[in-house]
Each structure stands twice: as C-alpha cells, then as structure tokens.
C-alpha cells in the first residue's frame, strides 16, 4: 500500500517535471526570438519574426557592430556608465541604508519611527508624482552626472531597503 503511494508520487513528480520543462522552454522562447532577430536585416524583423536568419535575411554580426559604434553615443560608453552607476549606487545603498537601519533598530526614538514610516511611505508613491521636481532638484544640485546619480538613487530607494533589513 505504502509502496504504491510512493511510486504514484514519483510518477506525479515525473509528470510535473515534464510539464515544467515544457513551460520553461516556452518561457525562454521570447528571449530566443530576440537573439534570432538580432542577426536579421532590419526589414525582416517585423515581417518574418520567427524565421531563422538565413539567406538574404541574415545580417551576420553587422547589427552588433552597428549597435556598438552607431552615432556619437557609442553603446560601449552607455554600458560603462551603467556599470559605474550600478556599482556606485549598490555600494552607497548597502553601506548607508544598513547603517541607518541598524541605527533605527537600536535607537527607538520618535524621530526614528518617523523616518521609518517615511521610508515605507515612499514605496507607495508613484514615480510620476516626483518625476518632474526630482529632475529639477537633481539638476540644481548638479547630481545629474553618472558620478552623482547614485546619490539620487540612494534617496529614492531607502524604503524598500530599510524595510527589508
């Protein structure tokens, strides 16, 4: 009897595993389509979205080359800026918010409670609400360069961070 249930369970698990495998493949397909299309000539991306980039459709690596070098704003630079901003802001956010969270946890003053509440509150404020004034403020304080944007990020995200800690 017991053996039966165990083998039944194993069977169930195998079936589930197969179903999940299929779903996973479907899940990856959109990414696959993007990769395929990145090798296609521009014209065929919308007309033959799911075809393999063969024959006259194929653009080889020319899209990649163009993407990296196009115009006066090379993609490489953008990537470097993104890396810079990500590293800096992750560092700043981790350091500063953990310090603040530690402090709030230790010191139980009214002030700290207020700050904590504000942090949670900032999570429900839609970005559109602060978008325009924020860009203005950031510009005024010269915080709109890749080196200083992390400070703005630090200010916009503490809600999520401190409530996690």
């Amino acid at each position: 009897m017991k053996k039966n249930t165990i083998s039944a369970m194993n069977r169930h698990k195998t079936i589930l595993s197969v179903i999940l495998a299929v779903v996973s493949i479907v899940y990856v397909l959109p990414v696959l389509a993007v990769v395929l299309n990145s090798f296609k000539q521009n014209t065929y991306v919308k007309t033959d979205t799911f075809a393999l980039p063969m024959g006259e459709m194929s653009a080889g690596f020319s899209n990649f080359v163009k993407g990296m070098t196009f115009g006066n704003y090379p993609f490489v630079n953008s990537v470097l800026y993104s890396v810079l901003i990500t590293v800096l802001s992750t560092f700043l956010i981790l350091l500063c918010t953990s310090m603040a969270a530690w402090y709030i946890e230790r010191v139980n003053s009214l002030f700290c409670k207020a700050v904590y509440f504000l942090c949670v509150f900032s999570m429900v404020v839609p970005f559109q609400m602060v978008m325009f004034p924020l860009s203005k403020t950031a510009d005024k304080l010269h915080l709109n360069t890749p080196w200083t944007i992390p400070v703005v990020y630090l200010g916009s995200v503490p809600g999520l961070q401190s409530s996690c800690l």
Binding site: Y103, P133, Y153
Partner: peptide, 18 residues
C-alpha cells in the same frame, strides 16, 4: 553619521520633490 547620508539623500531624492 549613521542617519545623515541616507537622510540627506532621502530629502534630495524624495521628500523635497514630493
């Protein structure tokens, strides 16, 4: 020291624009 940096950034990035 502990609250300062976050608080200043928070004021710049959220409270004042809000």
């Amino acid at each position: 020291l502990f609250m300062g940096p976050v608080l200043i950034a928070f004021i710049i990035g959220f409270v004042w624009p809000f």
